[in-house]
């Protein structure tokens, strides 16, 4: 068995917000009919939460489910459980037009923490990150500077963000630069 490592092995940077590469996380791309009873049940039993509403992320502890598109979810579980979880979902959806794929090693995860977390992302993405517009539990696929990413709000001062593993260094660098002390805009 190979020793799995995350893209940046927990790299961190400190600024007016803290950027951390969050290590390995189990991630399953699940495509199918999101209104299907079988799919809803499979999601609930795997991640412990319901299928999220449009552009939302439901989390409980170290598991979460995010709405990617009208026919796609991102199911997140601990890395050690992902192979089993993928198999279980695929089995539960036998006979349905659905697909579950383990994409954990194709991705990198970051956390952006601190009172200025909103601002770090707002500088880099064409998304309204004001307190009124973007609230806890919301999920957004967009771009971060030149990279395709998705982020969601865990609580008022914590965002999580996923990107392609091959772009992890770029994403880390651009987040760190955006969070550099002294570069606060103070608008949000």
């Amino acid at each position: 068995m190979s020793n799995a490592v995350s893209a940046l092995q927990g790299a961190t940077s400190e600024g007016f917000a803290t950027i951390t590469e969050a290590g390995l996380r189990g991630m399953i791309t699940l495509r199918g009919d999101l209104s299907s009873a079988k799919l809803k049940k499979a999601v609930k039993s795997t991640a412990g939460v319901d299928v999220p509403a449009q552009r939302a992320c439901n989390s409980a502890g170290d598991k979460a489910v995010a709405w990617m598109s009208p026919d796609e979810l991102l199911v997140m579980v601990p890395y050690a459980d992902v192979v089993d979880a993928t198999t279980r979902i695929a089995k539960a959806l036998e006979g349905e037009h659905a697909l579950a794929v383990n994409v954990s090693d194709a991705r990198a995860v970051f956390t952006i923490e601190g009172a200025g977390a909103r601002e770090v992302l707002a500088k880099l993405s064409p998304v309204d990150l004001s307190r009124e517009a973007f609230t806890t539990g919301m999920f957004r696929r967009t771009r971060l500077a030149q990279a395709a990413v998705a982020f969601w709000m865990r609580d008022e001062t914590t965002f999580e963000l996923v990107c392609f593993r091959s772009e992890a260094q770029y994403v880390f660098d651009v987040l760190s630069m955006s969070a550099r002390t002294g570069s606060e805009v103070g608008f949000l």
Binding site: Q54, R55, S69, P70, P126, R140, R141, T142, R143
Partner: peptide, 12 residues
């Protein structure tokens, strides 16, 4: 019309 985002040009 699928995700409801008011997307500006650079997302499209």
């Amino acid at each position: 019309p699928y995700c409801g985002v008011k997307a500006e040009e650079t997302e499209l």
